[in-house]
Design a protein around this nucleic acid. Sequence first.
DNA 1: TGTTAGCACTCTAGCGAGTCGAGTGCTAAC
DNA 2: GTTAGCACTCGACTCGCTAGAGTGCTAACA
Lengths: 349, 349
Amino acid sequence: MDLDDRKKKILLAIIKTYLDTGEPVGSRTISKIDGLSLSSATIRNEMADLVDMGYILQPHTSAGRIPSDKGYRFYVDQLMAEKEQEIVERERETDEMKDMLIEKADKMERLLKQVAKSLSVNTNYAAMISAPQYHMNRLKFIQLSRMEQNRIVAVIVVEGNMIKNQIIDVEEPIDDETLLKLNMLLNTTLNGMAIEDINLSIIARMKQQAGEQAGIIAEVIDAVAESIKADEDLEIYTSGANNIFKYPELADNQKASEIITAFEEKKQLTDLVYETLSHSDEHGIQVYIGEESPVPNMKDCSVVTATYELDEGIHGTIGIIGPKRMDYDKVLSTIKKLTNELDSMFKKG
Amino acid sequence: MDLDDRKKKILLAIIKTYLDTGEPVGSRTISKIDGLSLSSATIRNEMADLVDMGYILQPHTSAGRIPSDKGYRFYVDQLMAEKEQEIVERERETDEMKDMLIEKADKMERLLKQVAKSLSVNTNYAAMISAPQYHMNRLKFIQLSRMEQNRIVAVIVVEGNMIKNQIIDVEEPIDDETLLKLNMLLNTTLNGMAIEDINLSIIARMKQQAGEQAGIIAEVIDAVAESIKADEDLEIYTSGANNIFKYPELADNQKASEIITAFEEKKQLTDLVYETLSHSDEHGIQVYIGEESPVPNMKDCSVVTATYELDEGIHGTIGIIGPKRMDYDKVLSTIKKLTNELDSMFKKG
DNA sequence: TGTTAGCACTCTAGCGAGTCGAGTGCTAAC
DNA sequence: GTTAGCACTCGACTCGCTAGAGTGCTAACA
């Protein structure tokens, strides 16, 4: 059987209506609202076909139909295609969200929290945003300073001006001169390098160059490596989890608990972020419907994700989590606008 | 009317039973389990009195009784008095929680998250912990390093080894010598000072000492002050919010949403922390029952909080949020153990 | 005078029958 | 191929009933 033009129209009508009302939609409803001017009986016949083809479901014999995951998928693909068009055609207009974002975003963390908040408030769904992934990132600056006798603090700045700190306890006291030398060594060797490229041979070379301070430099470099790695569990900020209670189909005990759990244990969101990043073809917006989601706990939701770019090769992920019958249209535009906003922001400052 | 000994016993029996079962308890139940050997009729008479006195409630005529907030309060006060005794009598025993905590707690943030997690897992309630309040804290170390031409990074370490960073953009380039001088000046002047004590006169004096670099030092100090102040919104880590779904009386839509919201918008928890800190007489454990809670959204819960001490005058707050019929006994011991654990940990390392 | 047995009463939870109405599937006519 | 019509299905809701837990009150008892 084929998904001919009329079937498509009917399917879209069903889905749109269901997005609005959240209730199974019957043949009469469609026959009325639709521009097709077909009787309910005809619609019924078509609907029966659509059920056979798996695009819609019938909760029970005498209820209307609701979209299946496959149905949603069809709808979203349709929508995304349109969006693509739209984006090309229209100039990016200024956006009220922007002001809100800029306002007090002097620190990355605060900015991200604000973005998450803004997203959840604007959409009425739950939102998340991951801090940019520094995986591919370059070291910009390393500085060791003595804090106490046997204790130095390492400050590591990576591209994008994210700062990491690490306190290092050393066996024997370090004198000023050694510290200076070490700083020189670290900076000349490592500056501009991608973190991933710092391999054993480079470390070995540095140890060699450190000469008699090889012991100390080993300690320091280990600590620095540790610190860089330690932060690998990426930060994720969430907001608006309570929004799920606005949607009856998610608000039941079992499901709500699952979703909240996913939000709390950032681990699950981390998977989502990696999945998104790995699939992203520059600003690729991804829509996961129900079981498609990389996060099992969100099998009753739809998840829309997008990638933003902080700097060459430094990406982060934005996500919106809501019911399957979310307002995809709105969510897609919102998220698209936002990523654009972020990108242009980062490129400037 | 007076709360005589027998009434007390009956009241306690009612509350304990209710904590176990979560269901209204009738007179027959009490007459059986209790060591009082009274008939259900007598119990009924007493119960009627207890209702009059406001210690218990009757959901409807033919149901058993459940504790009122006042009843819980009586119970908790009783319990706390006993605890006080216990703690004095018994030596602090080693605790399996300790191992779990120490394990990988090389960073404060990670430690706190772990504590929260450990608490929520151990108790089956929701848990929160606030980062220590640095309000009263002393500066331990300041270091400015040049990162780029016109950009320096300030590293500020406060007692307890919390590190803060701030990137400072300066108008005109700073040379090495000036930077060294500034570092000296900052450290000699500010080290060991409580952050609160850094007032205008001290800053003025520093500017004077800086001589021709007064302009730069103003910038720097402003930035440092900014950075210290900026972090004043205290960090709060939460865990186990999903636990509330385990308790039917909290799991309904409305209430769950409120609680989750409180957990998400850390603002509300912040209030709780301040309230707790202001009332704390060293390790004071606080129990807020229902409406007593400083957080309106938690009016259907009980909240148990305690204060831990990281260092002289540096306090943080631990909290457990659960249903009113929480296992106060267990929660109180757990939280007491934990604060002790934290204290001894911090005093060592 | 405090305690207890007994009994009528109250109220909820749960069950089953009955009804309503939305929606279907099928057939026959257009 | 489309539509009108009609019997049928099935969940949601209502109503009445019952069982059972628990109460409050009274009267008897120690």
